[in-house]
Simulated assay, not measured.
Amino acid sequence: MGYQQIDCFDIHLKILRILGVWPHDNPSIYYIYFSRIFVFTFTVLYVVIYTMNFYFLPQQLEVFADELIFYFTNVGALSKALAFIFLRDKVKKMLFMLESEIFQSDDPEEIKLIKEGKEKSNFYWKITAGLSVSANTVNVCLPLLVHIIFSVELEFPVCRYSFIPEKYEAMFAYPAYFYQSIGITTHMLYNVNIDTFLLGVMFLAMTQLDILDRKLRKVTDVCINPDAARGSVDKFIDDQNAVLEIIKCIKHYDAICEYCKLIQDAFSEILFVLFSSGSCKICMCLFRFTMPATTGYFVFLTLYVTVMTLQVMVPCWFGSRLMDKSSQITIAAYDCDWTPRCRRFKSNLRLLVERANRPITIIGGKMFLLSLGTFTAIMNSSYSFFTLMRHMQSR
């Protein structure tokens, strides 16, 4: 069948390979050194310098709030990159399972479902990448163009390194600017490709549940003599065929559960950091709204907090959709023509229904259930932290 499932992740893995976190199966020594140097220089060291910069910032609450908004974003990107490196074997196992025989199909309708799932994954990547690259390009290039055309002071894309002495600012202005530009672009690409990769594998999990739903509703269609007399040869053959089909469905459901468990194992830490940092970023944006700023900056804050909210909401929404689709398996099982079938068929069907009564879930960091309920809790906690900070500020 070829790469019927995972070829929709080619663009994600190519970009992550360029960024040093997804090597080939047998990477050369040159790639290993490149990966270590690149990740350390533009990810680890980038965040370390950003952290060190807080010590030298002016003692102004507005300045600290501005810096913290981007700081949580950079810490999140660092954690995603490191998690993808250290959990690479689990990701490979998950992709290998997608290409296993049980997830392949020759049925035109099922192939159509798989194709639609891949198209949705690619479409979401295009939308996210397009918006992120456009916003990052403006953020990185606009200050430099304004500096060159109008001869104004060069503004850094993320933060001004306050630890650089004034007498050396002119000397390090351009190197620091280009270092920050490469760093923030790298972090943006980590966020875009790892986040959309996670949503892509969840798309395919939901596609497999749709395929299983369709199979269960038609599991008794293999019976060619539905009116055959009890005890006849035709009745026996039909029952045996139906039993074989329901066993295949049980194995398919087991494979989907195992696949979703691999998603959880591979992305548990990433989801934990995503939700934790997302809550902090939303809180800091709300807090920054209470301080004086220009109209342009308030517009930026509005767009930024909207994007951060969507970044948390979308995985939660997909997690809820995954639970809903897995819950539909029991309805699909009862929708088939099971009443005239043999006792063995009914026993297997009941076994599948009992297992499907517990929806498939994905948990981040052994704490956050991927659901809309978790999204509501995160927004409530962000607002609670915001009111606490407002209370402390008023005192």
Rank of each mutant, 00 (worst) to 15 (best):
F300P: 00
C336S: 15
A229F: 07
S381A: 03
I256N: 01
K120M: 07
V307S: 03
G373T: 05
K261N: 12
T186S: 15
I378D: 02
S347L: 07
Y71G: 02
A205H: 01
L144N: 01
T43K: 00
A242H: 10
I250L: 08
P175G: 12
D10A: 10
K115G: 05
Y334L: 03
E269D: 04
Y71N: 03
L286K: 01
L199I: 11
F178I: 12
M392N: 15
I270A: 01
V158S: 12
G76V: 04
S327N: 13
F289W: 05
F163G: 09
W125L: 13
Y161E: 06
A332T: 01
G183C: 15
L370P: 00
P226I: 06
F197M: 11
K112C: 11
F163H: 12
S181Y: 09
R288S: 03
I263F: 14
A377Y: 13
A377F: 10
A65E: 14
D89E: 15
F9P: 00
I282V: 08
R343N: 12
I114V: 11
N191V: 03
K90V: 07
F172R: 12
N122V: 11
L98A: 11
M313Q: 02
V201C: 06
I247F: 07
D239Y: 01
F178Y: 13
C280N: 04
H147C: 02
L19M: 13
I256T: 08
A333V: 13
S79Q: 05
Y31E: 04
A255S: 15
D7S: 15
F375Q: 00
V273F: 07
N122E: 14
I164N: 02
F156L: 11
R160E: 07
G183K: 03
L351I: 11
P58G: 14
F163D: 14
D195I: 10
F272Q: 02
M97L: 15
G117V: 01
L352P: 04
L68R: 10
M379L: 07
D337H: 12
S381P: 00
I182Y: 04
M97K: 15
R230L: 10
F9I: 02
M392A: 15
K126A: 07
L189Q: 11
L16R: 07
M313Y: 13
I362W: 10
T41W: 06
V138C: 03
V312K: 04
N193F: 13
V312F: 10
P340R: 08
Q59A: 03
K346L: 10
I331F: 10
V307Q: 04
F289H: 05
Y174V: 03
L142E: 03
T290C: 15
L13H: 14
E354F: 15
P292E: 12
A65Y: 14
R344K: 14
F267G: 01
D210G: 03
L388E: 08
D239A: 02
P165N: 11
A129W: 03
C257W: 08
C257N: 11
E109I: 09
D213E: 14
R217Q: 14
R395G: 04
